[in-house]
Design a protein around this nucleic acid. Structure first.
Lengths: 213, 213
DNA sequence: GTCTATACAGTGATAGAC
DNA sequence: GTCTATCACTGTATAGAC
């Protein structure tokens, strides 16, 4: 244990504190509204220590965001889904996807990326590759099995995956991003998923499983 | 003409210059990266004049964004669309909608709003009411006529409108927001519209018009 | 209202002791 | 590596003359 502490110290436990504090500050307030002073104080170190680990504010921001993009790997576990029970599988898949993209951290990250992509153009691709692209790949994988097994009649599995995502996000993701998620009269996540699955199966369903109650 | 110049001067031609300069700066760079110095210089007035018209940077920002939200009224002209030729009408409608939300000004506004909604919580509702909500209302109006005329079998016109929008935005809006619109291998706007209309008619179409080539 | 000049706070970044 | 103290600079905002 003494050894592991040694190693941790050698790797820089303070670097982790700084990154953690920077993550909290940046995700909550964006780039411009956060000062290096705040980050240093919140991390329990001096400002000079921050600069000993990171060349500047922009580099620190890039490190935080890049890390955050990589960390969040949304495993939709599509291999566990049975393509023969399409409605159930699509509902599970849709629910997992929406729970992920509507989680507070993911919404905050989404806001930051879009707000700062003009100043940090590289972030756009980093975000896309780490998030939406992976999700689409997983969903497309399920679409392929469903098409192969004959449960769905899909002219193009890639387009199908993109459209299923579009049906799921509908307006609900934008409402969350705009902080309007608790407006009265809005449908629940469960209803959004149900509606998306209904429509998707109306369009591409083949078997009697497409006729739900 | 002398009179109109007088009036313009009385209303403050400089206020317009300031708002115009602020709009350019804020839409291009966000809130934090813009200084009142830049705005004043770009507007051709002194900084004190800016403060004579607007209480501070935040108020100026709010004025610019609020104005921008109101200005952009996207008239989809749904009353001109014939519900009997569903495929053509949906294609026209989808094209107009996508051309609007993917226009440079709209994309820039979208980025700013999402990036600053944490600092300016009121902007979320302003944006929603002025843009997405109006678009949805117009699209829903068309869905109603299509349902009444029997061209589409829609269980819920509101949900149908939201889902049509979801199919249209699919991933293309996010790609534009992330500045990845010119990545190779991406579908054109025309293809996105076509795919959205295909799927929508597969789900809700009734007549033989749903069987396109 | 408009300008020039300036006050004042806060920022990112660094020097030097330990 | 880490700290305290400080730098140079930019930012918002204002005072006073016209």
């Amino acid at each position: 244990m003494e050894g592991s502490e040694r190693i941790e110290a050698a790797l820089g436990g303070k670097a982790e504190s700084i990154l953690a504090a920077a993550k909290r500050a940046f995700l909550a307030n964006g780039f411009g509204a956060v000062s290096m002073d705040t980050i240093a104080r919140d991390a329990g170190v001096s400002k000079a220590t921050v600069y000993a680990h990171f060349a500047g504010k922009e580099e620190l921001f890039g490190a935080v965001i890049g890390r955050e993009c990589e960390r969040r790997f949304d495993d939709l576990s599509v291999s566990e889904l049975d393509p023969r029970t399409v409605r159930i599988s699509l509902t599970t898949l849709g629910r997992r996807f929406l729970d992920f993209i509507l989680s507070p951290d993911e919404i905050a990250l989404h806001r930051i990326i879009l707000g700062e992509v003009t100043r940090f153009p590289a972030l756009g691709e980093v975000f896309w590759r780490a998030g939406p692209e992976r999700n689409l790949a997983q969903i497309q994988a399920f679409m392929r099995t469903a098409a192969t097994s004959g449960s769905l009649a899909l002219p193009d599995t890639r387009v199908a995956a993109e459209q299923f995502v579009g049906l799921l996000r509908s307006k609900v993701q934008l409402l969350y991003l705009l902080r309007l998620e608790s407006e009265p009269g809005q449908p629940t996540i469960g209803e959004v998923v149900e509606n998306a699955v209904d429509t998707f199966i109306r369009a591409f369903g083949r078997s009697s499983a497409s006729q739900g109650s």
